[in-house]
Design a protein around this nucleic acid. Structure first.
Length: 718
DNA sequence: CCAGAGCGCCTTTTT
DNA sequence: GGCGCTCTGG
């Protein structure tokens, strides 16, 4: 027991031992939050309750798994419920399917399934996908769901709104009907329907509150309104809610997360106690200073100071290279040197803003023989052979799953083409039955002609496979692969076939692992788990390889050496995200999250040009680099070179040679508009300058980074 | 009905 | 640069 409270600082101790009532733990990066949460759960289980009455909600399944393991290691067994909001939703919706208006065998549609349904809904509404971009419509529907609006409510609201919104309301309604017909829910529904379940069934809510007497929620800064409603619903009476988070690490506003939840916690729970963890145990002083300096540029922020007793450490580095291949070579050299000096590949992580940036790094690593892993757990499940196989399995669990049926019915090819499928779907719609049921009476649909027989063969096959749905998941995967004809299609010496079969074997192993840790588990439950895997879930921190991941995926992790690549204007901050100050601030937090993952050494790099969507483009270093404490940073910059002119497809509007700029001349800045140069001075390898802007006042800028264009005086209308 | 070629589109992050 | 959609010839 005492060991649970050992080596905790005062603030951590308070967070662990404050058992009852609402508690908000504002935990800065690297402040020992994970440890606090685990100890707290253990402490609760030891003093005021039992593990089965504790519910811990984490951000990823990986984090949930680790927490479960720690509790088990502390001797608390596996009784405590640890899950993500989405997996909690999935579980509650299955437990209480009738109350939620679902069948317990419902399917969870992933983003690509969802995209298909959106397209179909747009078509059914008599609209064209050229005018109504599926991705945009999908985002609008998702938005509505995050605001807890049903199609009816959205339509009611849209009544007084624009044509666009009224149309979205129509599509949303059709979209939702399509999901219902297929006994399917999307990721938003897992939250929305759970929130409604709690809101509409007081008895059920009370029952759950008695089961989950203590609720812990991690990464609270990244929860959205629906998740807040679930949290509120589960703790309405006893208010034993402990939320941990850090507003400076809020990076999911784009998917509806609201920083409001953490900022208003004390308002939502007036009796709340707030504990601040500000001592950092992870990083060196240099790293913290750089990260702190960056985040201070955010204006919408509660002031918080992270400090550490750790060493000063090595200087943070900013590395410039001519092109992405050079940047990759730089990484290769660094990694080789690291290994040569006795370091392990485990200790190195590479972060980036977008997934597309990995290709050149991967090529360089393959050439250099550096083993690496990419946090892309979902990618595996997007492979054709895996999707094909999962299609059959999904159909066995839920025959109403139209997306799965469309995929499976002609894979491998059975001579059932688009036209036949269309006729089948139309028949199903006209008779208000599922496509599967329509297929079952194919012989009664004359339009199908020859295809009817082929469809019957498929239905017969599904009937034969059906019993597998009730057996162990891995047996089902194996037997369906063999029985569906998919195995036969992949039979052959083609290396692509061999790889595909290996992937299938991996899928079988994954299912077997699941059955091992869930002996009572069903195929349906395994499929549910599969549909909720996240990218970072696949990361194995002991794999002895370099880890590559997006900045988003990096949240919550730590590595001795961190490299953040492509720190360029347009990528970080990302081009789609730099117009509004609030968006820039989120991008800055994203950079902050990446930087604070580093324990000993942090390196930020960028290239002078990069191929973006097939075009060589001149780049500019990110403005964030100018916000670092430049005197503490070790700069490794390239000599200016002119040859790029020949390589560029497009040239950046020339800023001219700033060395020749005179005080008093007029300049235009992309964000601040018109301004006048007051002074400039050399600062290390960079040039600082003071500019007075007509609408933003006086600012100090780094001329190498600020994208300013000199103006002719005539051009200025003063 | 199907496979493969050709064309146009696009910013991105994920449960 | 890559994906998804459409068109075309077999």
């Amino acid at each position: 027991m005492t060991s649970l409270l050992d080596d905790l600082n005062d603030a951590q101790l308070e967070a662990v031992t404050t058992t009852d009532g609402p508690l908000l733990v504002l935990a800065g990066a690297g402040s020992g939050k994970t440890r606090v949460i685990t100890r707290r759960a253990a402490y609760l289980a030891n003093t005021v309750t039992q593990p089965r009455h504790i519910l811990a909600i984490t951000f990823t399944n990986k984090a949930a798994g680790e927490m479960r393991e720690r509790m088990e290691a502390l001797g608390f067994g596996r009784e405590m419920m640890v899950c993500t909001f989405h997996s909690l939703g999935a579980r509650l919706l299955r437990w209480y399917a009738p109350q939620a208006g679902l069948k317990p065998n419902f399917t969870i549609f992933d983003e690509s399934d969802r995209r298909s349904v959106v397209k179909q809904a747009i078509a059914d509404a008599g609209l064209s996908t050229t005018n109504w971009v599926p991705a945009k419509v999908q985002a609008d529907i998702s938005d509505a769901k995050t605001r807890l609006l049903t199609p009816e409510q959205y339509a009611a609201e849209a009544g007084g709104l624009s044509f666009t919104e009224q149309t979205i309301a129509r599509v949303y309604r059709i979209y939702q009907q399509l999901l219902e017909q297929q006994q399917a829910v999307d990721f938003d529904d897992l939250l929305l329907k759970t929130a409604f379940l709690l809101g509409n069934h007081p008895d059920l809510r009370a029952h759950l509150e008695d089961r989950f007497r203590y609720v812990l929620i991690d990464e609270y800064q990244d929860t959205n309104h629906t998740q807040y409603m679930i949290a509120r619903g589960l703790t309405l009476k006893n208010e034993n809610i402990c939320a941990t988070g850090d507003p400076d690490q809020s990076i999911y506003a784009w998917r509806g997360a609201s920083i409001r939840n953490i900022l208003e916690f004390e308002h939502d729970f007036p009796t709340a106690k707030v504990v601040r963890l500000e001592q950092n145990y992870r990083s060196t002083k240099h790293i913290l200073s750089a990260a702190g300096s960056l985040i201070q540029s955010n204006t919408q922020r509660k002031k918080k100071d992270l400090w550490t007793e750790n060493d000063l450490g090595a200087a943070v580095r900013v590395v410039e290279r001519e092109e992405p291949a050079d940047e990759a070579d730089f990484l290769v050299e660094e990694i080789k040197a690291h290994v040569q000096s006795g370091g392990s590949l485990n200790e190195i992580a590479i972060f980036y803003r977008t997934n597309a940036l990995t290709r050149i790094i991967e090529e360089a690593f393959l050439r250099a023989g550096i083993s690496y892993q990419i946090a892309r757990g979902t990618e595996f499940y997007n492979r054709k052979e895996i999707k094909d196989l999962l299609g059959y399995l999904r159909l066995l669990v839920n025959p109403a799953d139209g997306i799965a049926l469309r995929r499976s019915i002609n894979t491998p090819a059975r001579g059932i083409g688009k036209t036949s499928l269309e006729r089948l779907t139309r028949y199903a719609e006209a008779n208000e039955i599922t496509t599967f049921e329509a297929a079952d009476r194919a012989d009664q649909i004359p339009e199908l002609k020859r295809a009817a027989g082929r469809i019957s063969v498929f239905i017969q096959l599904m009937r034969e496979l059906q019993p597998l749905a009730d057996g162990p998941a891995h047996v089902a995967v194996e037997q369906v692969f063999a029985g569906s004809g998919l195995a036969k299609e992949l039979d052959g010496p083609d290396p692509r076939n061999i790889e595909a079969v290996e992937n299938v074997d991996e899928l079988i192993s994954a299912a077997a692992d699941f059955m091992k840790s869930n002996p009572e588990g069903t195929l349906a439950e395994w499929l549910q788990q599969v549909s909720l895997v996240s990218d970072v879930d696949a990361v194995d921190t002991d794999a002895g390889v370099v880890t590559l991941m997006t900045l988003h995926a990096a949240k919550g992790l730590e590595f001795p050496k961190v490299y953040i690549i492509a720190v360029e204007d347009g990528l970080l901050p990302h081009a789609g995200y730099r117009d509004e100050p609030a968006q820039i601030e989120e991008e800055r937090r994203l950079c902050f999250v990446g930087m604070t993952r580093a324990q000993q050494q942090l390196t930020l790099s960028y290239a002078q040009w990069r191929t973006i969507r097939g075009m060589n483009t001149r780049t500019t270093a990110s403005q964030f680099l100018a916000e670092l404490p430049s005197e503490e940073i070790e700069w490794d910059l390239q000599q200016e070179e002119e040859s790029f002119r020949d390589k560029a497809d497009f040239q950046r509007p020339g800023q001219g040679d700033y060395r020749e700029w005179k005080n008093g001349m007029y300049l235009r800045h992309p964000q601040f508009g018109l301004g006048r140069l007051l002074w400039k001075e050399a600062s290390g390898k960079l040039t600082r300058a003071g500019v007075r802007f007509t609408s933003y006042g006086e600012k100090t800028l780094i001329l190498e980074y600020a994208k300013m264009t000199p103006l002719d005086v005539d051009e200025c209308q003063l």
